[in-house]
Simulated assay, not measured.
Amino acid sequence: MPNFPVTRARADRAVPAGRVGYDLNADRLLLHTFQPEEALEELLSTEQLIPDPSRAEPLFADAYAWMLREMDRRLPTSGDGALWFWARITREYLVESSRRHRGDVLLTCRIPRERVLLSHHWDWHCALNGIPHVLELPGEGDEDYDARRDRIWGEIDDRKRAAGVLHKEFREWPEDVRRDLERSWEQFLDPATYGRWDVVQATAHALRAEDVLYAVRLG
């Protein structure tokens, strides 16, 4: 049987006081995830949690499919879905998220780094919105960056317009446009591009009971 403790706490007391202590260079990453009660029961009964692909938001199917392909390419594991974790977030945000997840379970874990794929939380929205990710260059000012970003976005739109797919789903775009867009997204999978205070998320094919430090049912 899994030996991690399971407790119950008010949402505003579920996260211990003090610094959370994330280290993206650690061999085992400290991660947090909010899961429904049935996920905890699955962990307790089978000693692993396998994601349900049907829970992914259909509106963003193309972005999630790309992320799964990157996980299959970069990780030693495999699977049909992804579990999502916070890999670096403020304690205040965790507390606020706990309030929004009353009735769910907060799992605090340490997972070997090689089994998770890190991504920049806010830049991930480029994939969700089907737009190029434009990495800021060293020493580049805001105006120069905005102008370069707008030019790159405009060029992609021009190529889509020429192909007659400007308002169509990502999967219907020409292969060369999809390829260039996906290459730009790979940048936000590289921790070397993250700032010190950037919010970082992680995905994994599965969670094992041995990875869990403790679980808190949120009252």
Results as ranks from 00 to 15, higher is better:
residue 132 P to G: 04
residue 88 R to M: 03
residue 129 N to Q: 09
residue 128 L to K: 06
residue 88 R to S: 05
residue 132 P to Y: 02
residue 118 L to P: 04
residue 119 S to T: 15
residue 130 G to K: 02
residue 104 D to L: 08
residue 74 R to G: 02
residue 127 A to Q: 06
residue 94 L to R: 02
residue 82 A to E: 09
residue 119 S to W: 13
residue 93 Y to N: 00
residue 68 L to Y: 13
residue 94 L to Y: 04
residue 113 R to F: 09
residue 98 S to H: 06
residue 109 C to K: 12
residue 86 W to N: 00
residue 91 R to M: 15
residue 79 G to T: 02
residue 83 L to Q: 02
residue 84 W to S: 06
residue 115 R to L: 14
residue 117 L to P: 03
residue 83 L to W: 00
residue 81 G to C: 02
residue 98 S to E: 05
residue 111 I to F: 10
residue 125 H to I: 09
residue 84 W to G: 00
residue 79 G to K: 07
residue 125 H to L: 02
residue 99 R to A: 12
residue 129 N to S: 10
residue 118 L to K: 05
residue 94 L to K: 01
residue 65 A to C: 07
residue 102 R to S: 12
residue 70 E to G: 01
residue 108 T to W: 06
residue 128 L to I: 14
residue 113 R to P: 14
residue 125 H to R: 10
residue 119 S to D: 06
residue 119 S to K: 03
residue 115 R to N: 15
residue 90 T to Y: 04
residue 65 A to P: 07
residue 76 P to D: 12
residue 98 S to F: 01
residue 84 W to N: 03
residue 110 R to I: 09
residue 126 C to F: 08
residue 116 V to A: 14
residue 88 R to Q: 11
residue 128 L to H: 03
residue 71 M to R: 10
residue 73 R to V: 00
residue 97 S to G: 00
residue 121 H to F: 11
residue 98 S to K: 05
residue 119 S to F: 15
residue 81 G to L: 00
residue 95 V to G: 01
residue 72 D to V: 06
residue 126 C to G: 07
residue 73 R to W: 05
residue 121 H to V: 07
residue 78 S to G: 12
residue 104 D to A: 15
residue 103 G to H: 11
residue 92 E to C: 04
residue 127 A to L: 02
residue 107 L to Q: 10
residue 74 R to L: 13
residue 120 H to E: 13
residue 79 G to N: 08
residue 111 I to G: 12
residue 97 S to Y: 09
residue 126 C to L: 08
residue 75 L to I: 04
residue 66 W to C: 03
residue 126 C to M: 08
residue 89 I to K: 03
residue 129 N to Y: 10
residue 130 G to V: 06
residue 103 G to Q: 13
residue 129 N to C: 07
residue 101 H to E: 04
residue 113 R to Y: 09
residue 107 L to A: 09
residue 127 A to R: 06
residue 102 R to Q: 14
residue 119 S to Y: 15
residue 109 C to F: 13
residue 99 R to P: 04
residue 120 H to W: 14
residue 82 A to Y: 03
residue 108 T to L: 01
residue 108 T to E: 12
residue 111 I to D: 10
residue 69 R to S: 07
residue 116 V to L: 11
residue 100 R to C: 00
residue 106 L to M: 07
residue 102 R to N: 08
residue 102 R to W: 08
residue 117 L to Y: 10
residue 79 G to C: 12
residue 111 I to K: 10
residue 68 L to F: 13
residue 107 L to F: 09
residue 101 H to S: 08
residue 128 L to S: 01
residue 130 G to S: 11
residue 98 S to D: 03
residue 121 H to G: 05
residue 123 D to E: 14
residue 125 H to S: 05
residue 80 D to T: 14
residue 121 H to T: 10
residue 70 E to P: 00
residue 116 V to C: 15
residue 66 W to F: 07
residue 82 A to C: 13
